[in-house]
């Protein structure tokens, strides 16, 4: 199996879909000649031309709205929002329009638009270029929400998002673009709503998303050395959530830690904790532990940024709390 980066995996899903299907096109700010702020669409302009790799003005409302309009005609646009902080500018179109056309029309319309975006701390972009806002979108009926953590997953999930008949908000994490992983020769679509267990374990289930999947895997390895067996569970699709797999995992391990880079308060982990306590109440041997950023905007100075967002050590501490140990 070939090894490619997370960035190449995103590009591969987009390119293959565009080769096969005239209805797929991409648009966003600086995505053509420049290849996107993260280099995801580099080279695609040469292959597909400026109509289908479409540079846009800095107009998040119009970019998303135009994607919705084209999607309502049966096209499958992939809109790139350069930084997920800028999703806030397009939320009206995502929340009031994309999510609701099907419902308000009594089922007459479909809106198969994919809105890709990326964020995350690690490079000191500061408070307006690195937030993790995925929980906001999970709260909106009518949207699907994906957060992929590996090259294989990001490729298979993006393919499914493009071919899903609903609006999908697709989160990528900036620090993952360079990571490499093996992928199948041909794209294997990954069903939206199907979780992935990265590592089997017996004592604690760590439910992690995005960058924290990798932090959780590192924490699990350390815990293993201390005799604590950790299962790492990545929901991959935040909406719909693979509740069955989640509850089954916690019923097996009897303990649960949720870990994401977004702030803890009102984060996606709160939803996971609620689902777990309801579905596996009698199986839980410890309170569900939550790991996430401190409740502050992201600071600029690297030492402060590092302090605010969670790392493997924070996940490990939470794991130990659930088994009544100290590090």
């Amino acid at each position: 199996m070939p090894e490619i980066s997370y960035r190449e995996a995103v590009r591969d899903a987009l390119s293959r879909a565009m080769r096969e299907d005239d209805d797929v096109f991409v648009m966003g700010e600086d995505i053509a000649e420049m290849g996107g702020s993260m280099g995801v669409t580099q080279g695609m302009l040469d292959e597909f031309g400026p109509e289908r790799v479409r540079n846009t003005p800095i107009s998040e409302m119009a970019i998303v709205g135009a994607g919705i309009g084209a999607a309502m005609q049966g096209m499958r646009p992939v809109v790139e929002i350069m930084y997920e902080d800028f999703l806030t500018l397009s939320l009206e179109q995502i929340v009031n329009q994309a999510a609701k056309h099907r419902y308000m029309s009594g089922g007459q319309l479909k809106v198969p638009v994919t809105i890709r975006t990326q964020g995350g701390a690690g490079w000191s972009p500061g408070a307006q270029h690195a937030q993790q806002l995925e929980a906001w979108l999970v709260h909106i009926p009518g949207l699907k929400v994906v957060f992929a953590s590996t090259p294989e997953d990001v490729r298979g999930l993006l393919w499914s998002a493009i071919y899903d008949d609903n609006p999908v908000v697709f989160f990528e994490h900036r620090t993952l673009y360079g990571i490499k992983g093996e992928v199948p020769e041909e794209i294997e679509p990954i069903e939206l709503g199907k979780a992935r267990i990265h590592r089997q374990g017996e004592d604690v289930t760590v439910v992690a998303t995005g960058r924290l999947v990798h932090e959780a895997l590192a924490a699990a390895q350390e815990a293993e050395a201390q005799g604590v067996s950790v299962e790492v569970f990545d929901p991959r699709t935040l909406q719909p959530l693979d509740e069955r797999a989640l509850i089954d995992s916690v019923k097996k391990t009897n303990r649960c830690v949720v870990a994401h880079e977004a702030v803890v308060r009102g984060g996606y982990g709160a939803e996971i904790a609620a689902v777990v306590q309801h579905g596996a109440f009698d199986w839980l041997d410890a309170p569900v532990e939550r790991v996430g950023a401190k409740f502050v905007p992201l600071p600029f100075a690297p030492v402060m940024e590092e302090f605010v967002v969670p790392h493997a050590a924070d996940v490990l501490e939470a794991i130990y709390r659930t088994v009544g140990r100290t590090a």
Binding site: I63, G69, M72, Q73, Q93
Partner: peptide, 17 residues
Amino acid sequence: GGGLPQITGTALAFKFR
């Protein structure tokens, strides 16, 4: 004003096709 960008996008689809 909610529908206006979608009219631009709908028209874009007509142009594409």
